[in-house]
Design a protein around this nucleic acid. Sequence first.
DNA 1: TGTTAGCACTCTAAGCCGTTGAGTGCTAAC
DNA 2: GTTAGCACTCAACGGCTTAGAGTGCTAACA
Lengths: 339, 339
Amino acid sequence: MDAEHMDARKERILKAIIDDYILTAMPVGSRTISRKYETTLSSATIRNEMSDLAELGYLAQPHVSAGRVPSVKAYRLYVDALLSGEELPMDENARAYFAERVRQMEDVITTAAQAISEITRYTALVMMPKQLELRVATLQLVPMPKGSALLVIVTDTGAIRDTVIKVSENLDGDALYAISRMMTERLRGRTLQEVQEMLRGYSHQAGADGRVLEGIADLAAQMEKQSATDTVTVGGSHNILNYPEYSDVEKARAFLAVLEEKDRLMDLLSGSGAAFTVLIGPETGVPEMADCSVVTAGYRVGAGHRGAVGVIGPTRMPYGKVLSALNAVGSVLSELLSE
Amino acid sequence: MDAEHMDARKERILKAIIDDYILTAMPVGSRTISRKYETTLSSATIRNEMSDLAELGYLAQPHVSAGRVPSVKAYRLYVDALLSGEELPMDENARAYFAERVRQMEDVITTAAQAISEITRYTALVMMPKQLELRVATLQLVPMPKGSALLVIVTDTGAIRDTVIKVSENLDGDALYAISRMMTERLRGRTLQEVQEMLRGYSHQAGADGRVLEGIADLAAQMEKQSATDTVTVGGSHNILNYPEYSDVEKARAFLAVLEEKDRLMDLLSGSGAAFTVLIGPETGVPEMADCSVVTAGYRVGAGHRGAVGVIGPTRMPYGKVLSALNAVGSVLSELLSE
DNA sequence: TGTTAGCACTCTAAGCCGTTGAGTGCTAAC
DNA sequence: GTTAGCACTCAACGGCTTAGAGTGCTAACA
């Protein structure tokens, strides 16, 4: 039996099977296709075609008297067709999620994760790439009640971080501003790394309040630590429970446990660097997600740097819709973070 | 048949049954008690006692040939004994969780939720009470690259909120500080409500950059909105999957759905106002949590105000351990937030 | 009077059919 | 190349049986 090659009809039938399976999560029989999709053909004809498709490796049978289920190879074909198609449509209401609170990078990232998970009803991943060589732009002390002050550091990229430190009770707003000015003058343009080195040296000297110097060094260290490594945020983690693939609590637990391991998630997101990536089932390399696919889209953040947004859901997911959602959120992110 | 009254031995047996059930989640038989807990008594004797306890309403039988399961009344007795006992021990390593990042109130709350869920392996709730009448203490603009500035508002209670706003490109650090000083002078001591009213009035006038005024008003509005209502944070929500009570995905989903409804959670936390509260099963009034108990502990936050920390877990939970964990985290919170 | 051994009884959980129905593969006719 | 028809397979389901856990009761004992 020569395995026949794909022709247009086979492709149509395969697509119909995938579409139906995505909808129902149940093996698809020849009658279903004959009645719902290819009404001009009888179920027997569909059976012959399905048999060929099975031989070509596009369909699998859970058991002999069940319908057919798309294989990884089938999804691959399906997705590749999608990706090579014309421009992806853009889910338009994505922007609405960002209407209000655009504050810091972290907020934007969290909002994005929430937006994606709500739009798609799957688990969302958002990756923020590391930012090396952050340089101090401004440093300021804001007076607070009771001998405290809020230390704010702003970097050249616009990242903001603050912390509360103790200062002498007799420093008023003007005094704190004077210190801020002086420190900004000295530290502007330095990398976080340099700031720490400089201040650790100073701190034994006299001069300004030692606690201020220490506070600055600590905050710089913290900022560096947080920004020197890619971070990934998860949204809608328990959406997975909505899908019959994970109606077994054990499987669901294993899945959720993987979501806690940020480095494994990183591997999923830091794909080829292409605009879109789709990893299907075993391609993810994560056994606990054998029934899942990971769809990712890149977004620009400033010069050259790239982040990624993604979705984890059952292999049978409406890839088209997911891709447009990611496309939309990715664009909004590029826009917000490239300013 | 007169229902006998409780005596010391009945109480011991009941406690043994509860302890065993907490451990195993399986109906407890008379043999188990006779061998593991009351080794001097035969199973027949235990059976007689258990029969009495059942008649008194402390034990239930899933079916006639199964062991006994503690009733709500039994848990109540067990817990009340616990609560009226001597001082609760304090889980000592709770403080370790707060070692590093003590920044804003929100951070503390989130950390607390995480700490509780990790210590107990249950779902944690942390309630932060509303703060009416917040008054502005300081207001400051920190220069940022490219015609932006970071607007920071600090209240008399030490709450901090910031937002990025656009300002004229030609305002340097000193100019921004001058504006900050002026605005602080005018707004210090005003409630957030008043600030908004004043600024909405101004904004049509000339004077300072209109966008600054608008930014301040917006931020004040946001702060007020956030602080005017009790908020509740959830940690470790999917810990529930660890327990056989929720090995059914449907039940687990319903449970997780309730966790999203903050107002229902509020009802659980805003209990009697006692130091500790335990709601057992149906006492929670949440049908989706019929197999759960809610344990809460209050903590002080500033003058008079009270927040609450809590745990949601299966009715058969080690109440003693949970109470000490909550006690410990509550104390740390009181300490951190009363400063 | 309280404790215990013994025994009959009950009821779930687990395994074992037989049946049903969906869906296939193959063949023969169009 | 398409289709009707038919034999065949296999999971899912319900009914049945069995094994085992645990009870309640009774009678004997200290």
